[in-house]
């Protein structure tokens, strides 16, 4: 999987009080939360499936991977429908965000490496952090953050 999207424009969203950024090129649409069909014996990271305008998409819970508590659907919750390439297959993936903030420009040069200490999420899922208006935006490594778990890849 290669990430060819230029890191010029990104969409920021919130998870558990933190701001994350994902390249807009990966964002297909933003929709209201919708019912999730639970898949039996599924990885908690991909607990079910949703119907996005007549197409079935896997529903992923990024909080799981980032070591956060379970999501609670609230007033501001939105579902991001992402265009990803998973294991060589173009795949639409749905994920729940606590809030969708804004479209912002983060040039690659603004990226700072993560501090070694004091980070509570797995660093391999993150490309770096960008400073914006005195707050931190965590720029996700899309391929790593959304890849089906290695064990799932083996079983598939």
């Amino acid at each position: 999987m290669s990430d060819t999207v230029q890191f010029d424009t990104a969409l920021t969203f919130s998870l558990d009080g933190e701001r994350f950024a994902i390249p807009v090129g990966h964002v297909h649409e933003i929709i209201d939360p919708l019912p999730v069909t639970r898949a039996p014996n599924a990885d908690p990271f991909a607990p079910g499936l949703v119907n996005v305008r007549g197409a079935i998409a896997p529903f992923v819970d990024l909080r799981r991977r980032l070591g956060m508590g379970p999501a609670v659907v609230g007033e501001t919750s939105r579902v991001l429908v992402l265009d990803l390439v998973v294991g060589g297959e173009p795949t639409k993936v749905a994920m729940l965000a606590d809030d969708v903030d804004e479209i912002t420009d983060t040039a690659d040069t603004d990226l700072e490496a993560l501090p070694e200490l004091g980070v509570r999420w797995p660093t391999h899922l993150i490309r770096g952090v960008a400073r914006k208006d005195s707050s931190l935006i965590i720029v996700l490594d899309v391929d790593a953050a959304f890849s089906p778990t290695p064990t799932q890849m083996l079983r598939a």
């Binding site: 898949a39 039996p40 014996n41 896997p58 297959e89 799932q152």
Partner: peptide
């Protein structure tokens, strides 16, 4: 099924 769920034994599709 997508690659996220294809590995689950017992599922044929959706």
């Amino acid at each position: 099924l997508s690659l996220y769920h294809r590995g689950i034994e017992g599922l044929a599709g959706s």
